[in-house]
Design a protein around this nucleic acid. Structure first.
Length: 192
DNA sequence: CCGTCGATCTCCT
DNA sequence: GGAGATCGACGGG
């Protein structure tokens, strides 16, 4: 499984949630690859296993959602065969469906880039929480990823260093952050 | 516009 | 006890 290639391929696809029969969705415009065992920035570095990260060691196609700083729910796609804990963090969405419902979830009255820019903001907008960790993203579940037929945003894919992983030493320099150049819904961070 | 700080969960030391 | 794959409120310039 080529996590780097898949991280780029996820850009332009649609992340969808559906709770109470109501869809909310956005086009993925920013991702980060986390390469499990060999990546100091990964929760699974050195094959370290905890209750929280156990889902990363399961088969690809599952959601890994964890709580960051005690507040923010961060959504990842587990992408590799069983035992290989690679994951892709979704960091930015361009909202396309159910915007009113997203605004309500975020206590906002108007759409602007802050609705779904950044990994903690987009989960709040879609209603994704740690309750969804471990669910399948390809079967019939409240959260999944699908091809976006009509609404594919344009732009070149840039590769930059990842955000907030300075502690990862030399791995902090790896160009494992991917985003659509110029898209307003990419997160703030160095290099942008 | 900018920097600082609080929120308060999980895991490591 | 401390830091982290973060965000938004607040205060000063």
């Amino acid at each position: 499984m080529d996590v780097i290639r898949l991280s780029k391929e996820l850009i332009g696809k649609k992340l969808v949630s559906c709770f109470d029969g109501k869809r909310t969705a956005g086009i993925i415009v920013e991702t980060e690859a986390y390469l499990g065992e060999i990546d100091r920035a990964s929760h699974a570095y050195g094959l370290r296993r905890t209750a929280r990260t156990e889902v990363m060691f399961r088969e690809g196609g599952l959601a890994y959602v964890y709580l960051c700083y005690g507040i923010h729910h961060l959504f990842n796609v587990v992408v590799s065969p069983k035992g290989i804990p690679h994951a892709i963090l979704i960091r930015g969405l361009e909202p396309v469906e159910g915007i009113d419902r997203m605004l309500k979830r975020c206590n906002k009255s108007r759409l602007d880039r802050t609705l779904t820019s950044g990994p903690g903001s987009l989960t709040r907008a879609l209603g994704i929480t740690t309750e969804q960790t471990g669910i399948s993203l390809i079967r019939n579940t409240p959260v999944w990823i699908e091809d976006s037929k009509n609404t594919i945003p344009s732009g070149r894919i840039l590769s930059l260093t990842r955000v907030g992983v300075e502690y990862a030493k030399e791995d902090a320099l790896l160009p494992y952050r991917f985003l659509l150049e110029g898209n307003p819904y990419v997160s703030k961070g160095k290099g942008i």
